[in-house]
């Protein structure tokens, strides 16, 4: 397995799972980057996310 320092010595192809600006900067620097559509779960709403996690991963009640 390559060391991280060696990896950055090679030509990189970057997959950007973040805001588009990250990929733009790589392209401007001569790199290649592909954007994948990504947004934070529940649009970053921590309260809603907590509820989703509880629904998905663990709970109690039968029948409500």
């Amino acid at each position: 397995m390559k060391k991280l320092s060696e990896l950055f010595g090679e030509k990189l192809f970057v997959v950007n799972a973040g805001i588009a600006m990250f990929a733009e900067n790589i392209r401007k620097a001569g790199g290649e980057a592909a954007d994948i559509e990504w947004r934070p779960p529940a649009k970053g709403n921590a309260e809603i996310l907590k509820k989703i996690k509880k629904i998905k991963f663990g709970t109690k009640k039968a029948g409500g």
Partner: peptide, 14 residues
Amino acid sequence: FTDALNAFYEKYAK
């Protein structure tokens, strides 16, 4: 959808 999710949480997971 958020209203429904909140109601679902209240009924089943709170």
